[in-house]
């Protein structure tokens, strides 16, 4: 019955400058916290400039996971990486708003493609600022 927590690691894939995380399981709190530090460590290791977190299969995001995601975005931005939450289901969005978690400051996109465009645009904008 008791599954080892480490067995259920959520894979983080690196493509170009970005990390892609697709959450496919209903996470319990410990797994959510573990994922948060896992992503931050990966940002440090790879120097990724953006993170796409796909939650399109998540049927429920409660206050804990919501807080984890928005905290994640803030932490990553201090480390100079932007986080985009991708593919939230309408029911999840409504529930989050009703819970009172409006996640200000967190970037979202309808799907992976749009999220990727968003990150690329941001990276370009940063480049222009430099020159």
């Amino acid at each position: 019955m008791n599954i080892d927590l480490h067995e259920k690691r959520i894979p983080i894939i690196k493509i170009g400058n970005f990390l892609i995380v697709s959450i496919q399981v209903d996470m319990h709190d410990k797994l959510a916290i573990q994922l948060q530090s896992q992503i931050l460590e990966e940002i440090e290791k790879t120097g990724a400039k953006g993170v796409l977190i796909d939650i399109s299969v998540l049927e429920m995001v409660d206050s804990f996971i919501g807080r984890m995601l928005s905290g994640m975005a803030t932490m990553a931005s201090i480390m100079d990486a932007s986080v985009v939450i991708v593919g939230m289901q309408p029911a999840v969005a409504i529930t989050l708003v009703e819970l009172g978690l409006e996640m200000p400051g967190v970037d979202t996109a309808l799907n992976m493609e749009k999220g990727m465009e968003m990150l690329e645009k941001r990276l370009k904008d940063d480049d222009y600022k430099l020159y």
Partner: peptide, 12 residues
């Protein structure tokens, strides 16, 4: 207000 906020959470 809720509709607009939820739409934003979807990335729109």
């Amino acid at each position: 207000l809720k509709t607009v906020t939820a739409a934003r959470l979807l990335g729109t």
